[in-house]
Every structure is written in structure tokens, then in C-alpha cells.
Amino acid sequence: MSLLSMTKTNLKALFHGPYTSQFPLKAREPFANTRGHIDCDLSTCIFCTLCDKKCPTGAISVTRSVKATDTTPEKKGTWSIEPLKCIQCGYCVETCNKNSLIMKGECSEPATENVR
């Protein structure tokens, strides 16, 4: 048994400098696989509501227009996601037939709608 078994580690740490990253001076880049937030490309979305049905937390809501004359993305329907409900599981991205949903690496902005 020894009383100085930590000496080597402590000395190394003394000359190593900080182990933590110097945020915000040096921001951490997300990995290519990082699940940050979901984004929808409305120009290709056909508002089929599949992501709405499959989402395990019910974070996505999709409405589609019933009028055949509505052809522009704004009129075809609406797609929205509640950031606080989304668990970034990526299930919607998998189920999207048109590949309109994309998992972005950056985390979403803080939700401020409930801030008073």
C-alpha cells in the first residue's frame, strides 16, 4: 500500500493544461453521425403524415390540404415539430419515403416559446 500512488497522474495533469475544451473560443464540432435536430425540406415533402403517425413521442404534426388545386408547398400542407418533445431517435427520417426529413448534427436552438 502506498500514500503517493496518485503522484504521477497529478504531475502529468499539472503540465498538461486544461483537459476541457475552451468553449466558446473553441467550439466543438459535431460528428457526422451526431443526432442534433430534425429538419424538413418542404419543397419535396408530400405531407403524407407518415412521420406524424410513426413518431414515438408525437412531436411531429402534419396537416395536408384536401384541395387538388393547392400545389405550392405553402398550400399543400403544414409540417411542424415540437423541439421539447422530440427525442432525436431518427425514426421519422427512416420512414420518410421522399427523404425530405434530415437529421442535422447541430442541436436545435433553445425553445423560448414558454419563456415569459
Partner: peptide, 25 residues
């Protein structure tokens, strides 16, 4: 602190391969 510093390296491997640090999906 040294134990958890080391754990961070493992969490980075998780993030790199699965996209999540503790919940991998």
C-alpha cells in the same frame, strides 16, 4: 475527475458511431 475524463473519450466513440452520447437509438 480523472475517471470521468476518461469516460468522456468513450462517450465520444459512441457519438461518432451512433450519433448519441448516452441514448443511441
Amino acid at each position: 475527475m480523472h475517471s470521468w475524463r476518461l469516460r468522456e473519450k468513450i462517450l465520444d466513440i459512441f457519438e461518432q458511431t451512433t450519433g448519441g452520447r448516452v441514448i443511441f437509438s
